[in-house]
Design a protein around this nucleic acid. Structure first.
Lengths: 184, 184
DNA sequence: ACCTGAACACCGTTCAAGT
DNA sequence: ACCTGAACACCGTTCAAGT
C-alpha cells in the first residue's frame, strides 16, 4: 500500500488534469483518498506545499529525461520533443510546474534545480557530440529552454492554433531554433 | 471623470501589481472605487471578464509597441527589449496577460489577435530592413516571440537568478537568439 | 502519530429590492 | 441603468478532541 502522502499527491494531480487548478480543493483531494477535508494538513504545511508535491514529481521525470541525453541514450532534440509532448499532453501540470511559485515553496522545490542542472549537462553532452555548436553552454541552455517552454506555453494557451496564420506546433519552433543554431 | 468600468479595471490592475492574483477580490476592487462588493457585476459578466479587462489594456500597449517597428520609429530588437522590460517591471500583469485563459474569455480578447498580427508585421518590416534574415515571417515570428516570452517567464519565476550558474537576464537571451539568426 | 468534526473568516455569485 | 444588502454555497485554515 502506497503511503497517504503519495496518494494525496496522486489525487491532486488527477484533479488538476481533469479540471484545472480550481478543481484542486483540499476537500475533494482528501475525499478521493477517503479522508476528512483537513487530513492533508498532517502531511503538507498548506495547499501550496501539496501542489509543490505535484511539481516535484514532474521535475523528477524531467531530470531523468535530460539525464538520458547525458548517458547517450537519447539525442537532445528527441529529449526536447519528449519534453514538449509531455507539456502538451498534460498542460495543467506543465503550467503548474513551470509557473509562478511563492518564494517559500520554490525553496522547497529542490528537484527544480536538479532538473536545471541535468539540462545543462545534456547541452554539454550534445555539444560534445556535435548536435549543438560550441560556445558557453549556460547561454545555449537558457536560450533553448526559454524557447522550448515559451513554445509549449503558446500552444497550451492557444496562440499557435493549427490552421491559423501561426500554423504549426511547439516541436516546429524548437526544430527551427536548432536549425539556426547549427547553420554551418 | 473616467467611467466606472475603467476605474474598476484600474483598481484591479493596481491590486494585481501589489499582491498578485489572490489579492484581486471583487470586494476589494469595488471597495477601492467606493462601491459595494457586487457592483462590478453591472459592468462585467464575472471576475474572469474583469481580469480580461486588465489583459486587454496590456495587449493594446503591446500592439502599439510592435506598430512602432512597422512605422520605422523603432528597431525590432529595441521593441523586444521594451517588451521584456515591461514584463519584468510588472510580472503579474505579464503572467496574467500571456497565461492561460478560459475559452470563453479568450474569444472576447480581440486585442490579443491584433497584437499578434502587429508583431508579425513588425517581423516583416524588420526583414525588409535587414534586421532579420529572409524566410517565412510566420516561422520567425513565433520563434522570436516564444523565446522572448519564455525568457521573461524564466526571469519572473526566478529561473535566471543573477549571480547563479544561469546568470543573465531576459534581454541577453533575446540578444543571443538574434545573433544566431543573423550569423552571416 | 494520524485523523475527525466543528468553527472561522473569506470568497464569487445570485437575487430581491431600491433610485 | 446602476447600485445596495442579505443570503448561499464554497473554500483554506485552525483548533480542540479523539485513537
Amino acid at each position: 500500500m502506497t503511503d497517504t502522502r503519495t496518494r494525496l499527491v496522486e489525487a491532486a494531480a488527477a484533479l488538476l488534469d481533469e479540471g484545472g487548478p480550481s478543481a484542486v480543493t483540499l476537500r475533494e483531494v482528501a475525499g478521493r483518498v477517503g479522508l476528512s477535508h483537513n487530513a492533508p494538513y498532517r502531511h503538507f504545511k498548506d495547499k501550496d506545499m501539496l501542489l509543490a508535491g505535484i511539481a516535484e514529481r514532474e521535475l523528477v521525470v524531467s531530470r531523468q529525461n535530460w539525464q538520458a541525453v547525458v548517458d547517450g541514450n537519447m539525442t537532445l532534440i528527441d529529449a526536447l520533443r519528449e519534453h514538449l509532448r509531455r507539456a502538451i499532453a498534460w498542460p495543467e501540470r506543465f503550467s503548474l510546474t513551470y509557473g509562478p511559485w511563492p518564494a517559500a515553496v520554490k525553496h522547497a522545490l529542490t528537484s527544480g534545480t536538479e532538473a536545471q542542472q541535468a539540462f545543462l549537462s545534456a547541452v554539454v553532452a550534445a555539444q560534445a557530440r556535435g548536435e549543438l555548436p560550441p560556445g558557453e553552454p549556460e547561454r545555449l541552455a537558457r536560450l533553448i529552454l526559454a524557447t522550448a517552454n515559451g513554445a509549449a506555453t503558446q500552444v497550451i494557451n492557444g496562440h499557435l492554433a493549427r490552421g491559423g496564420k501561426w500554423n504549426g506546433d511547439a516541436e516546429d519552433v524548437v526544430t527551427d531554433l536548432l536549425a539556426f543554431l547549427n547553420r554551418d
